[in-house]
Design a binder for these strands. Structure first.
Lengths: 345, 345
DNA sequence: TGTTAGCACTCTATAAAGTTGAGTGCTAAT
DNA sequence: ATTAGCACTCAACTTTATAGAGTGCTAACA
């Protein structure tokens, strides 16, 4: 027995219907609301076959059928016809409110959540190594100095330091110069003890301050390498009865609140032909997150420059409206591309 | 009929028991588990009185009693004996992980949530006006310039700008000087059109860049004035059956996710004698947040310097463990005080 | 006069039993 | 190969019964 055209059509009808209603779909429904013109009995026979093939199951003997993960997978891979979503003027809204990367990403999460009625996540882009572009020391007052650290890619960090000894303006300038000559263009791994010693030998009484600054630089680079995750619309999860079971809901919401587990969508082993903006669909267990075994996650990849990318994800029930979600995500990725391109005129 | 000592003791016993169990408390329970040595019948009589006085109610005829908001209020105001919570080594943990204000506050929210099993919120401190301490312009490359804006209180903001025309090093220096001479020490309201015109007349071809920078300064100051709210442990709400009703839970969680409504705890009209670190308890409707009518919120005030303060809040069911929460908060406020004091040696 | 034992009563929560209806699988006829 | 028809199943809902926690009231007691 194999999956002929009619079986495929019936399966599609079942899944479509289930996506809308969330209720098991019976043979009569399919018989009535498709143009196949088959009686419910025939549909029943076909359904029995589809069940044997593993695409659908009955929650219990006398109920209709619901799709299995395998069924959803087939649907997503071959039967879905993407809807292009009219997320009009999203870009304008985005630009208006967000002048900085972090805001932008948070805004993206928010808009997607509002648009889809699912929970959303956005990860910060993942950089490989980051080199130091330059450091600028400024004396704020007699005992305080501000260090602005600019990394490759124009990532700016600033830290305030307190010195135990009163600062002399010329010393600060000298320190600045010393730091830059030693550190400019270096990566974090390249800052070794020898270098630190050499640097310290040149700064006289300010050794302690320099230590602090070096630490700060290290953590700054480190933390820039960390992936952060923004989420939005977590409570949308509660709109879907099949996820509103108190325990499931708590687990999912915790996962969304804690965020750690979400980073695992970034490094995905299954690489995918790229014509679809890196859109990936994880169904149920495919998410590899235990609390999300009743969810699906759709992720898309945005790239801010060659090889530096992050993920945008939509988290909803398995019966989420995949077409719309994929459409919305593709649209959003387009908007983001525009923004990132426009940023370098 | 008035609230004599015995009634008070019984009320206290009822509330204590209800805080623990969350179940209506019957006369027999009180008769057995207090040292009053009264029969359940007597307790019943007293309970009837307490009900008439409005401190307790029956959810239905044949059930025990639960405290009303008025009952809780009396308890919190007069009967509670604060437990000092041993939040040991919290400070070390805090300092270790958080080198910056924002991180610190987020960390505070997280630790409190972990410690109390309730949801928590922390607001950023509320500044009055902020004056510009100095601005520092640095050319990053030929077309880009970095502006570091330092506000009074050592708040540092940085923005990157693109210039349409190639930047000349000396021009950037001049621009820097001009900006500082005009803007240093000024508040946002003091930057008027006349001043802007004068400034622009001195910067030759860079008028557009200056406009952008001024805009950025304005939004930087503005956004520093905005109160942000961090929350943590939102899902703890779901641990309490009386809040786990799907609709209540959704509403509460949304409120916590959206955060806007939470800022209203910052500006509190009821001022309070300060020996208790500004701890306030809002019971049910007192929160003035509709979705939280079944919750209580306990807030404490931290002050980073004279007049500049923010709030830390714990959100839980009405039957939250007020003693412990107040204790924990007082403790935490102590730790924060230490940290802020140590910051200026 | 305050306290208490005792009893009838109330009402929720839980369990048990009954009912309904959507949906199935199988068989026999087309 | 398709379909009408029928017996069967099972979750979901409704109804009825039962248990028990708790009350209010009364009358007796110290």
């Amino acid at each position: 027995m194999d999956l002929d055209d009619r079986k495929l059509k019936i399966l599609q009808a079942i899944i479509k219907n289930y996506l809308e209603t969330g209720e098991p779909v019976g043979s009569r429904t399919i018989s009535k609301y498709t143009d196949l013109n088959l009686s419910s009995a025939t549909i029943r026979n076909e359904m029995a076959d589809l069940e044997e093939l593993g695409y659908i199951v009955q929650p219990h003997t006398s109920a209709g059928r619901i799709p299995t993960d395998k069924g959803y997978r087939l649907y997503v891979d071959t039967m879905m016809q993407e809807k292009v979503d009219e997320v009009n003027n999203m870009r304008d809204d985005l630009l208006e409110k967000a002048d900085r990367m972090e805001n932008l990403l948070q805004q993206v999460a928010k808009m997607l959540a509002a648009n889809t009625n699912y929970a959303t996540m956005v990860t910060t882009p993942k950089y490989r190594s980051r080199k130091i572009k330059f450091i600028q020391l400024t004396d704020v007052d007699e005992y305080q100095v501000l260090a602005v650290i600019v990394l490759e890619g124009n990532i700016v960090k600033n830290r305030m330091f307190k010195s135990d000894i009163a600062l002399v303006k010329e010393d600060v300038l000298k320190l600045n110069l010393a730091l830059n000559t030693f550190l400019q263009g270096l990566d974090i791994e390249e800052i070794n003890i020898g270098l630190v010693q050499k640097l310290k030998s040149q700064v006289g009484a300010y050794q302690e301050l320099v230590s602090e600054i070096l630490d700060a630089i290290a953590t700054a680079i480190q933390e820039e390498g960390d992936i952060r995750v923004y989420t939005s619309g977590a409570t949308n999860i509660l709109k879907y009865p099949e996820l509103s079971d108190m325990n499931k809901a708590r687990d999912i919401l915790s996962t969304l609140e804690n965020k750690e587990e979400l980073t695992q969508f970034v490094d995905n082993p299954d690489i995918q032909p790229d014509e679809k903006r890196g859109i990936q669909v994880y169904i149920g267990d495919e998410t590899r997150v235990d609390s999300m075994k009743d969810c699906s996650v759709v992720t898309a990849t945005y790239e801010i420059e060659e090889g530096i990318y992050g993920k945008v994800g939509i988290i909803g029930p398995k019966r989420m409206d995949y077409e719309r979600v994929v459409g919305t995500l593709q649209n959003m990725m387009g908007q983001l591309d525009d923004i990132f391109k426009n940023k370098k005129p």
